[in-house]
């Protein structure tokens, strides 16, 4: 879990790859019909278009994008036992209005599907159990809503099968032995603030502690202050230290360009170290760090590298 845009999907994909490589039958799940991971893991786009199917990407590593509507149909069939009854219900307008109206039902169905995936005895006929379900959660606030939906739904419904089931799901989510939460952040002010918020709220609302904190895209420390001093001294007489915000008409000498890139890199690395310290103080533990990759796109090669680094860092 973490702020939008920090690389949750990448970390989820890397964790999934890692678990599969260690021999765990693993499924990486995306919610709210997202497809980020399928892109990262290189799923065949045709296959990836079918929601709610468990796609085997490579031996031991599966992927699913959860569609609440499909989850609902599955759920009804499972509950009603008789397919015709389930179909009568899901086709009725009354039911559809109710389903659209009940607040949090979409979230509940999604979390319910995650629960189903994690069961030793799967409820969907013909499916096999997984050792690990890796969930790529939505951004912090909405992600927390997913986690807390089962308990608030159980409170609203009070009695009846849905309330009972919601309670069962909540118990699994709030059990630190069964559920682990990994906070993902980049080493920047706001994402770190959200990670710290998650740390506090997770404890308050679910009684859970973060299992791991992963800092994604951390700039390596490449230049010392002494290096930078020596570089500045290498500028030709009359040459200025180049600005990070040049006018389009400005021109840089090779040395200026080299110095500019080095200064930017050093500044970023320094600022990011401060954020990592803040994260460490706030959560009381050192985060695992993944390096920033100087590449235009994130492909399977980069992912393999990250999975490798993650293994070392955890």
């Amino acid at each position: 879990m973490g702020k939008g845009g920090v690389g949750k999907s990448t970390v989820a994909a890397a964790l999934g790859s890692l678990a599969a490589a260690r021999g765990l039958r693993t499924i990486v799940a995306e919610v709210a019909l997202r497809r980020d991971i399928s892109r990262t893991l290189g799923t065949d786009p045709e296959v990836a278009r079918a929601p709610e199917t468990e796609v085997e990407l490579r031996p031991g590593l599966f992927w699913i994008s959860i569609d609440p509507h499909r989850a609902m149909e599955e759920y009804l069939v499972d509950q009603m036992r008789v397919r015709a009854l389930a179909e009568a219900l899901s086709a009725s307008r009354a039911f559809n209005y109710l389903a659209a109206a009940a607040p949090g039902l979409q979230e509940l169905l999604t979390v319910g599907k995650l629960w189903e995936l994690s069961q030793r005895e799967r409820r969907i006929p013909g499916t096999k159990p997984y050792d690990l379900v890796v969930v790529d959660a939505p951004a912090t606030g909405h992600g927390l809503a997913y986690l807390t939906t089962p308990s608030s739904f159980a409170d609203i419904a009070r009695a009846g099968p849905i309330a009972r089931q919601a309670r069962t799901i909540h118990e699994m989510l709030a059990d630190g032995r069964q559920t682990g939460v990994v906070a993902v952040t980049t080493p920047h002010e706001l994402p770190v603030t959200e990670a710290l918020f998650l740390h506090v709220e997770l404890r308050r609302r679910m009684g859970l502690d973060l299992d791991r904190v992963v800092v994604n895209a951390l700039a390596p420390a490449r230049f010392s202050p002494r290096d930078l001093e020596r570089l500045r001294a290498a500028l030709a007489p009359g040459e200025e230290t180049p600005s990070p915000e040049p006018e389009p008409s400005d021109h840089w000498s090779p040395v200026q360009a080299g110095i500019r890139a080095a200064l930017s890199q050093a500044d970023q690395a320094r600022d990011q170290r401060r954020q990592v310290d803040r994260l460490r103080r706030g959560t009381g533990r050192p985060p695992a760090a993944l390096p920033f990759l100087y590449s235009a796109t994130l492909g399977s090669e980069e992912l393999a590298l990250l999975a490798d680094r993650l293994e070392g860092a955890l």
Partner: peptide, 29 residues
């Protein structure tokens, strides 16, 4: 502007001033 120069040239020009190890790192960065 970063795209207008050749890192190898940066390496060559900087080596005289700051020595090869640092010049190499600057060029790679």
């Amino acid at each position: 502007q970063l795209l207008e120069v050749d890192p190898q040239q940066v390496d060559a020009e900087l080596t005289a001033h700051v020595g090869q190890p640092l010049a190499r790192r600057v060029a790679a960065n």
